[in-house]
Simulated assay, not measured.
Amino acid sequence: MQGLVFWLIYPILWLISILPFRIFYIVSDMVFILVYHVIGYRRKTVRDNLELVFPEKSESEIKQIRKKFYRHMCDMFLEMIKSISISEKEIEKRFTFTNVEYLRKLESLDKSLVVMLGHYASYEWINALQLYGLKYRTYGIYKKIKNKQFDDLAKRIRGRFGGTLITTNKTTEVILKNREKGILGNYAMIADQSPKLSRARTWVNFMGIKVPVFEGSDRLARKMDMAVVYLHVEKVGRGYYQATLKPITEDAPNEPKHAITRKFVEYLEEQIYNKPEYYLWTHKRWKHRNESIPKNAEIIN
Rank of each mutant, 00 (worst) to 15 (best):
L117T: 15
R42I: 09
W281P: 00
T171V: 15
G140Q: 05
G3A: 10
I86Q: 04
P253M: 11
N254Q: 03
K246M: 13
P212D: 06
M76Q: 06
T244A: 10
N178W: 12
L8S: 08
Y36T: 04
S28D: 02
W14S: 01
Y230M: 08
A200S: 15
V265R: 03
Y10S: 07
D192W: 02
R47F: 05
I260Y: 01
I141A: 15
I81S: 01
T167P: 04
T282L: 13
W14C: 02
S87P: 05
K235F: 04
K57A: 10
I12Y: 02
V228Y: 02
L220R: 00
L19H: 00
V35P: 00
R199P: 04
A200D: 07
E51P: 00
E107M: 11
K155I: 14
N127F: 11
I23M: 10
H288C: 09
K181I: 11
A252G: 08
K146T: 12
D251I: 14
N254I: 08
G40W: 12
N290T: 13
R47L: 07
F206S: 07
A259T: 01
Q64T: 14
D75W: 09
L34H: 05
Q149N: 12
L134F: 09
Y139V: 14
A252Q: 06
W203C: 06
G216P: 03
P276C: 09
L50I: 10
R71K: 12
I9Q: 09
N254D: 11
M1L: 10
K196Y: 11
K135A: 12
W125F: 14
L34T: 13
K275C: 03
V211N: 03
